[in-house]
Write a protein that binds this DNA or RNA. Structure first.
Lengths: 209, 209
DNA sequence: CGATTCGGAGAACGTACGTTCTCCGGCGAG
DNA sequence: CTCGCCGGAGAACGTACGTTCTCCGAATCG
């Protein structure tokens, strides 16, 4: 190849990154981050160790990359799911998020929210991880916020409703893996329905006595 | 002392267990379980290493003990908090759980639910930990269930409401550490109020169209 | 065909862990 | 005072980690 910055080597490096992120993401999610060694990732990905450290400077970098990748995957998955319901009413589209949760919870590999797990395991001791977690949660919250927008509420009421739905969704995500029951998503959906109805019928801002 | 099974040695062993659990609980909670070594626990507790392994067979045992101890501490804390509001209405007593959450979230050391964190870090790979987590969450749920009982609903409606409040409370517990805002508890309380009102006014069982 | 460069496999290195063992000083018994 | 036991401090051991280095075979180029 004549151009070293664009040649086959660069493409291979991207392939390595993809293989590593795919393998590492699954392993970290299944067993936790600290419990999975780089050698396990190497074996699962099939990428030789030398290229592992050419693709990622360190395990920390790989961890952050897996979270960023998962964030993108989730965003795409939610988008696909909602696009398939583009004809539904605004209310049903908001509630569809909980149907999406239900499908996720029912997966064999489901073990809660990888971001919550990573934050719980590493917390603020790993600043880039904490940042990725916050970015993901902000993104998820803004998905809800945009769906709520379609309900035609005031901006304040829409903010409040999105925040509440966000709390409920997170509650389902953390409850489902512990009880092992995907039905948690249905219960959360019922909660969401009550909240949406309360918000669309009445002003439903603060919490008066 | 004349009775070796009741003498000073046995009391010392209990003291050691208490010191170790106190030190380990704080460290595990602050930094995660795998990130804290036994030597750090030893240093923080002041218990010599030999007595550490006399008090607990292994780190796994210590981890489980810290979770059991935290469970008992939380149960006592919630009980105290609710006892101080024994004159309130049943609805306010249910919602008081979220005031308790608010106080908890505002603590400097707050870093989410230790049980959720432990489950996310170790998951089902550590069976005794997973069991302790499930036991704790069952206990917390039953606290809510007993409070809901005072509302005078049917058993089915009370079960459903308790489950929903449980999801909302868990959502607040996982959202607050990521955003860093104790106000999440107030928002969750507002959600809970809507749910309680919906349950006490209408039958509010399943999720009809 | 010979020389050189590249990359893969895994050995090697430094560190840190969980756990056990050794040593030594103090204290009670005779 | 001497002996023996107990417990504390921390060295030691085996393992496993993250990361780097060494060696060797294969492919490329002249």
């Amino acid at each position: 190849m004549s151009d070293p910055s664009r040649g086959g080597a660069a493409i291979d490096a991207d392939d390595d990154r993809a293989s590593l992120v795919a393998a590492a993401s699954e392993l970290f999610y299944a067993h936790g981050i600290q419990a999975v060694g780089m050698d396990t990732v190497r074996a699962a990905s099939g990428v030789p160790l030398k290229r592992v450290y050419r693709a990622f400077r360190s395990k920390d970098d790989l961890v952050e990359a897996t979270l960023r990748d998962r964030d993108a995957g989730i965003a795409a998955s939610v988008r696909r799911f909602l696009d398939a319901r583009s004809g539904d009413s605004p209310t049903e589209r908001v509630l569809a998020v909980f149907d999406w949760l239900h499908e996720w919870f029912a997966e064999d590999s489901f073990r809660g929210c990888a971001f919550v797990n990573a934050f719980g395991e590493l917390g603020d001791d790993a600043a880039p991880v904490a940042e990725a977690v916050r970015d993901h949660k902000r993104a998820f919250r803004s998905v809800l916020r945009r769906l709520v927008d379609e309900l035609g509420l005031s901006a304040d009421d829409a903010d409040a409703l999105a925040e509440r739905l966000y709390i409920v969704a997170n509650g389902a995500m953390v409850t489902a893996p512990i009880t092992g029951s995907p039905a948690t998503a249905a219960e959360a959906k019922a909660v969401a329905r009550v909240l949406v109805e309360a918000a669309t019928v009445r002003p439903a801002s603060g919490a008066p006595g």
